[in-house]
Lab assay of single mutants.
Amino acid sequence: QWKVGDKCSAIWSEDGCIYPATIASIDFKRETCVVVYTGYGNREEQNLSDLLSPICE
């Protein structure tokens, strides 16, 4: 189960590419979260089910 502060990978809606991110907040009722893309600072809402394991850098 994901928690705030977890590192993950998420698909950015603008280009469909996968980027490393950190979970900033979680809404368990809606099963969504807000991620912050590492190195970019962009925030975006994602479905918890769409999150991927962190990418090894």
Rank of each mutant, 00 (worst) to 15 (best):
Q1S: 12
W2H: 13
W2Q: 13
W2C: 14
W2F: 07
W2N: 14
K3P: 15
K3I: 13
V4R: 00
V4P: 14
V4Q: 07
G5N: 06
G5F: 08
D6H: 00
D6E: 02
D6M: 10
D6R: 00
D6Y: 08
D6C: 12
K7G: 10
K7S: 11
K7A: 12
K7H: 10
K7M: 12
C8P: 00
C8D: 00
C8V: 15
C8I: 10
C8F: 01
S9I: 08
S9F: 15
S9N: 09
S9A: 13
S9K: 07
S9D: 03
A10F: 07
A10S: 03
A10E: 04
I11S: 02
I11K: 09
I11P: 01
W12G: 00
W12V: 05
W12D: 01
E14S: 08
E14G: 15
E14R: 15
E14W: 14
D15Y: 08
D15L: 07
D15M: 09
D15F: 10
D15A: 05
D15T: 10
G16P: 06
C17T: 03
C17E: 13
C17G: 11
I18L: 12
I18Y: 14
Y19S: 03
Y19G: 02
Y19V: 02
Y19C: 01
P20Q: 12
P20R: 10
A21V: 09
A21C: 15
A21N: 00
A21H: 06
A21K: 03
A21D: 00
T22C: 06
T22Y: 11
T22D: 01
I23E: 01
I23T: 02
I23C: 01
A24L: 15
S25K: 02
S25M: 09
S25T: 09
S25W: 10
I26M: 03
I26F: 05
I26T: 01
I26Q: 01
I26S: 01
D27E: 04
D27S: 05
D27R: 07
D27P: 00
D27Q: 03
D27M: 08
F28R: 12
F28W: 15
F28K: 09
F28Y: 15
F28C: 02
K29Y: 12
K29R: 12
K29A: 13
K29H: 11
R30E: 08
R30S: 10
R30F: 09
E31Y: 11
E31I: 09
E31V: 07
E31L: 14
T32I: 10
T32C: 04
T32S: 04
T32A: 01
C33I: 08
C33G: 00
C33P: 00
V34S: 03
V34D: 00
V34K: 01
Y37I: 01
Y37K: 00
Y37V: 00
T38G: 01
T38M: 11
G39I: 11
G39H: 13
G39Q: 09
Y40S: 15
Y40P: 03
Y40M: 15
Y40K: 12
Y40E: 01
G41V: 05
G41M: 10
G41R: 08
G41L: 07
N42R: 15
R43L: 08
E44R: 07
E44G: 04
E44K: 04
E44Y: 06
E45H: 06
Q46W: 07
Q46M: 08
Q46P: 05
N47E: 05
N47R: 15
N47T: 06
L48Q: 04
L48K: 01
L48H: 03
S49W: 10
S49V: 11
S49N: 08
S49L: 07
S49I: 11
D50L: 07
D50E: 08
D50H: 05
D50Y: 10
L51K: 02
L51D: 01
L52G: 01
L52I: 06
L52D: 01
S53P: 15
S53T: 06
S53V: 10
P54E: 06
I55T: 09
I55M: 14
I55Y: 12
I55V: 11
I55S: 09
C56V: 14
C56D: 15
C56E: 15
E57I: 13
